[in-house]
């Protein structure tokens, strides 16, 4: 008797649990369908961390393709303009190990400058610029819109008369940043005597 009861109990328990599982599964499915996010939320997040210089030094035609490649498992350390900060941020986001940069980090923020007297108006640089930062027309002198230039270097090589230089970007005075000498110890603990650094 007790056996039959317990058997019945087991069957009903399995039935209820299966029902619950199916029910909640359907609910979850419906909710995830209803509140579906963007197609590639992770790629978007990765893309947001890349510097958007669009220089192609990572081996991909722009930052977004590299973001997609990272999402598929490519290494994090291929973006020189981003440098170590970007690698660290990517590692934090993806829970992966940060690796040292593959390549040389650019030493400063730069911007392209066309020596206008020498420009022959060939439009080769316009075709190379990933962000349309160069204006000019065929056989007309060309010039770079400084605010739009990302400093990616891509226009330098195509120029047949070598009239494009990369120059340091002049920062406006309002964006000046103070340089602070910081001491190592910030909070005194009983292990380090107060006043000692």
């Amino acid at each position: 008797m007790s056996d039959a009861v317990s058997l019945w109990g087991i069957i009903s328990a399995i039935g209820i649990l299966t029902g619950l599982g199916v029910g909640f599964g359907a609910l979850l499915g419906a909710v995830s369908e209803r509140f579906k996010g963007d197609a590639h939320p992770l790629v978007d997040q990765i893309d947001a961390l890349l510097p958007q210089t669009q220089c192609g030094q990572c081996g991909y035609p722009g930052c977004r393709p590299y973001a997609e490649a990272i999402n598929e498992g490519d290494a994090l350390n291929k973006c020189p303009p981003g440098g170590d900060a970007t690698i660290q941020a990517l590692a934090d986001l993806l829970g992966r190990e940060a690796e040292p940069l593959d390549g040389d980090a650019p030493e400063e923020n730069r911007v392209a400058f066309i020596r206008e007297a020498e420009c022959i108006g060939c439009t080769k640089c316009i075709q190379a610029c990933p962000v349309d930062a160069i204006i000019g027309a065929a056989k007309q002198m060309h010039t770079v819109i400084e605010d739009e230039c990302t400093g990616c270097d891509l226009c330098v090589d195509p120029c047949p008369v070598d009239c494009i230089d990369m120059r340091p970007r002049s920062a406006p005075l309002t964006q000046w940043q103070p340089v602070m000498p910081f001491t190592a110890s910030v909070i005194t603990s009983d292990r380090s005597p107060a006043g000692g650094n």
């Binding site: 893309d47 890349l50 510097p51 958007q52 210089t53 669009q54 722009g62 930052c63 977004r64 990933p130 962000v131 349309d132 930062a133 739009e148 990302t150």
Partner: peptide, 8 residues
């Protein structure tokens, strides 16, 4: 960076 991305 956002702006550069949109231009790209």
């Amino acid at each position: 960076a956002d702006h550069a991305k949109h231009r790209f």
